[in-house]
Simulated scan of single mutants.
Amino acid sequence: MRAFLTVSRGIDRLLGWSAVIGGWCIVGLILVVFYDVVTRYLGVPKVFGLNSTKLQESEYWLHSYAIVLVVGAAYVRQTHVRIDLLRENLSLRLRYWIEAVGCAVMLVPYSILGAWLSWPYALRAWSTGETSKSQIGLSDIWLLKGGLIVMFVLLGLAGLSVFIKAVAGIAGQLPASMQAETLGGEN
């Protein structure tokens, strides 16, 4: 079980690094929005062949990638919404079972299906050289659509990590320090 928990910790570190990159996307988003506002409303000329359309499209690209790169880390840190009306009254072991079954039956298969169904969508955008619907917008739309695949892979890895921790909890081998990051809340 220790080897699996080591794998889980490795996945968590990968997801943490991904979230840091997602955080930098937010910093980039703030800078792009600031630049767009300054150039548009204060009459400052745009440089590097940029235009308002490209800037606005890059804003939603950065926003999209921030979400894509953070969603897995958010799941393993238990920052997602839970409705714990019944669960909190259950035994600790049963809560671990619910978490393990939820990951194995719903989250990981959903992530695999999502990545599988997103693959042709991104591949079609790449193979056709899809660009923005605006003639002066961004090109390489496959990078944006490929973010769906990245998101589902990261979410699937998060589900695998929490599954490993839940199984360790069922077996009574989960360190107490990892209990809250497996079940959420104040356990």
Score class of each variant (00 low, 15 high):
1 M>L: 13
2 R>S: 12
3 A>W: 05
6 T>G: 12
9 R>L: 06
11 I>K: 09
11 I>W: 09
14 L>I: 14
16 G>E: 01
19 A>W: 08
20 V>Q: 05
30 I>Y: 10
32 V>C: 10
32 V>G: 03
32 V>I: 08
33 V>I: 14
35 Y>N: 03
40 R>N: 03
42 L>N: 06
43 G>N: 03
43 G>W: 08
51 N>L: 10
53 T>P: 09
55 L>Y: 03
59 E>C: 14
60 Y>D: 00
60 Y>T: 09
62 L>A: 08
62 L>M: 03
62 L>K: 03
63 H>T: 00
64 S>E: 00
65 Y>K: 03
67 I>F: 12
69 L>A: 02
70 V>P: 02
72 G>D: 00
74 A>R: 00
76 V>A: 07
78 Q>I: 01
82 R>H: 11
85 L>S: 10
87 R>G: 04
88 E>V: 14
94 L>N: 02
95 R>L: 02
95 R>Y: 02
97 W>D: 00
97 W>I: 13
98 I>H: 01
101 V>C: 13
113 L>T: 04
115 A>K: 01
117 L>M: 13
117 L>T: 05
118 S>Q: 07
121 Y>Q: 10
121 Y>K: 05
122 A>N: 03
122 A>V: 09
125 A>M: 10
128 T>N: 14
128 T>S: 15
128 T>P: 04
130 E>A: 14
135 Q>H: 11
142 W>D: 01
146 G>L: 04
148 L>D: 02
151 M>S: 09
151 M>Q: 08
152 F>Y: 11
154 L>T: 01
157 L>W: 01
158 A>H: 08
159 G>V: 06
159 G>R: 05
167 V>Y: 05
167 V>P: 02
169 G>S: 08
171 A>D: 06
172 G>P: 07
175 P>A: 10
178 M>C: 09
179 Q>F: 13
181 E>C: 14
181 E>H: 11
181 E>Q: 13
184 G>Q: 05
